[in-house]
């Protein structure tokens, strides 16, 4: 199994970015801004963010902004909070949030809060606790949480808590590790973790670890590298990370690398992609793997980036 193939992964990320000729890469163009966040955050954790031309990235990204203030996934695409958070996070990595019209962006996000405290993802009204997290995380990074009703936002998230201690996308929806990360992250950012039964949720989360050491996102599912991030970050935020076997998980992630061409896949032997490469590296960072920058479990950005923004270092 061996080590994390840092140089190979850097090369993989830089070449994925250039691939514009295969059907597989073209049909992802509507979420290119998410891809930029995954790739660039990985590079930063690996200490290689300077391998990209930040002016080029930022000037492309600003063309994805809509007049409403929200960002589309690429130039000419409709805005959605999913891409707006990625844009803010990428600018945070480059310490360039000031290129934004912060009021405009935060008004866009705040305008999507509903009466019951929930958030829509865009003007078409789909509601999801993921969007609650995105709104809260974005506004915290922009220092404009005052533009929304935080208490109602928190109450809505709490209303999505299930009897097993987990959270789903809407009230009564099945618990899912990705949704749990969003809900716990949003509660952590707003200082509302007292709403979580930590032992009960920790119990559900640590039961996600399967024999191979990998984590799944729901009962009976196969382990998947991306859940290393969602389950692990949640366990850290509720202070129960000692309930899983960290060594086995590290081995599972390292076994999912493509050691020849770089990149990490969902589980050993599968094809790699940028999404799982990010979650694998971010997971290893949470596991304090040597040589990696520490990542913040709630903001999903390197700790130094978050500190610079929130406490001016």
């Amino acid at each position: 199994m061996g080590e994390l193939a840092v140089d190979k992964h850097v090369k993989f990320i830089l070449t994925v970015e250039k691939d514009k000729d295969s059907f597989e890469s073209i049909v992802m163009e509507h979420i290119r801004l998410n891809g930029a966040y995954w790739g660039l955050t990985t590079l930063d954790i690996l200490g290689k963010l300077n391998a990209v031309d930040q002016d080029e990235v930022i000037s492309w990204m600003m063309q994805c902004q809509h007049e409403s203030g929200g960002f589309g996934g690429n130039i000419g695409h409709d805005p959605h909070v999913l891409y707006t958070l990625s844009a803010i996070q990428v600018l945070a990595l480059f310490d360039k949030i000031d290129v934004l019209d912060v009021d405009k962006v935060s008004n866009y996000i705040a305008g999507l809060q509903n009466e019951d405290g929930s958030f829509s993802g865009d003007m078409w009204g789909e509601i999801d606790t993921r969007f609650s997290y995105i709104a809260i995380c974005s506004l915290a990074l922009l220092k404009h949480l005052d533009k929304i009703n935080v208490e109602r936002a928190v109450n809505y998230i709490v209303s999505c808590k299930n009897l097993d201690g987990g959270f789903g996308c809407t009230p009564g929806a099945e618990s899912h590790a990705g949704q749990i990360f969003c809900c716990v992250g949003a509660l952590a950012i707003t200082g509302s973790l007292h709403h979580v039964d930590k032992d009960l949720l920790g119990w559900w989360l640590c039961e996600r670890q399967v024999k191979s050491g990998g984590l799944n996102g729901r009962p009976e599912k196969l382990p998947d590298v991306c859940y290393s991030w969602w389950v692990l970050s949640s366990l850290i935020m509720i202070d129960r990370v000692h309930w899983i076997d960290k060594e086995k998980l590290i081995r599972f992630i390292l076994d999912s690398q493509d050691k020849e061409n770089g990149g990490i896949s969902d589980r050993p032997g599968d094809a790699v992609d940028i999404f799982h490469t990010y979650f694998g590296v971010a997971g290893l960072s949470l596991l304090e793997y040597r040589g990696l920058k520490a990542i913040d479990p709630a903001y999903a950005l390197p700790v130094d980036v978050v500190n610079k923004i929130l406490i001016g270092r």
Partner: peptide
């Protein structure tokens, strides 16, 4: 049919 999560296309249909 070719790119099922092309949100802008769903939106303009709406």
């Amino acid at each position: 049919l070719l790119s099922c999560d092309f949100g802008t296309a769903w939106n303009f249909r709406k």
